[in-house]
Write a protein that binds this DNA or RNA. Structure first.
Lengths: 203, 203
DNA sequence: GTCTTACAGTTTACGCTGTCAACCTGGAAT
DNA sequence: ATTCCAGGTTGACAGCGTAAACTGTAAGAC
């Protein structure tokens, strides 16, 4: 009970406090509100102190991105272990992906919707590992590797298009949202299993 | 041949010169490089002069967005007037959409990939008009309005997912790009015409 | 018990951003 | 000749990420 240390809780080390505040700010006000100075003032330190614990602002964001991927992976892997045929499993996994995006739009935004040049510095291996849940799409097609990879990418990009446009509020609000989502997921699953031009001659 | 006016060509009025420089900068270095001061110095005026011709930096961007939509609309409408059944027309229109995105990625980025809060101020009616080409997807399904709108949205979001991930370089480069594109387009067309869950009971 | 070293902060500063308020200036209208 | 105004400039403000230099404090070595 020493009386020193005025503003910040000394129990949580600064790094964790910064991360916590970044999370709060991201979820509460979105990526655009994340500035080093805002985080610092909310946490009770100076902006430059952040650089004692993170190489750059980007690497702080990457920590949040990692957390996002962890949750997405957890959700997807859990659903993928359910029972049912490949098609219904794929449907459920796709649903889990979409639900994640719509329930945690701020995380989805920094994970998948940030500008490429900003993302470039994200370590490649970390990205591979992080995207692990996307491979589930490919695996569920039970096709030869190359073909599966393409089908997985098709499913992913279809779902990503839906989620990103919904998050950005670019889809006409007069549309029945739930019907659109369910139909899109079905369409994505079709894209995974239906006959497609490259299917015959790409193995 | 009056000897005054050192830097800027007096023939082109400033507004057009600003737009031209913004175009050049966007295409050459991308959206992130677009700053009022850079535009101004390249054009030979001060940054604040831009505000004599545009309400804000955003409204300057909107002018570029409008140009992008104009080109996209032109491409899509032209292709949609070709002959062939609805399916092959839809395929060609989808291809035109994807080609536009991949050939003019910087324009696609400001048109479809900018953050929502930034886009909010874009006038609603302008957006409706601008998105005209997206309605072509819906019209080609030849379905009742509501159902067509949903199918059109599915096609659009599928293509948008593909284009945006390709632009952001998030698709595994080991994939055969052309095969992925062609398969995605086919999958999108499937989504427009195949039986989907909401199809039966939504009219 | 003093000296050293290292860590964990702060202060200050630089160059960049969009934008506003005030000022200036040349030419047309009265 | 005077006034007005469109179209520019200058200067400033608040905010951004971040680098460099400085400070206080705690632990270890002698």
């Amino acid at each position: 009970m020493c009386p020193s240390r005025p503003t910040r809780d000394p129990a949580t080390p600064l790094r964790e406090a910064i991360l916590q505040e970044a999370r709060t700010l991201l979820e509460g006000e979105g990526y655009a509100a994340l500035s080093t100075r805002r985080i610092a003032s909310a946490v009770g330190c100076t902006a430059t102190s952040i650089y004692l614990h993170f190489k750059s602002k980007d690497s702080l964001i990457y920590a949040l991105i990692d957390e996002g991927f962890e949750e997405l992976n957890r959700r997807v892997v859990e659903v993928s272990k359910g029972d049912g045929n490949a098609l219904s499993l794929l449907h459920d996994v796709a649903r889990a992906y979409v639900d994640f995006g719509l329930e945690r739009p701020e995380y989805y935004e920094i994970m998948f919707m940030l500008r490429a040049e900003q993302m470039e510095r994200y370590p490649v291996d970390a990205y591979r590992r992080a995207r692990r849940s996307l491979d589930v799409f490919a695996e569920l097609t039970a096709l030869p590797a190359q073909e599966a990879a393409r089908r997985g990418a098709i499913v992913w990009s279809t779902l990503h298009g839906l989620v990103s446009l919904l998050i950005a509020q670019r889809i006409d609000i007069s549309l029945d949202r739930e019907a659109l989502i369910e139909d899109s997921i079905h369409s994505a699953c079709l894209g995974a299993f239906a006959a497609l031009p490259s299917g015959a001659n790409s193995a």
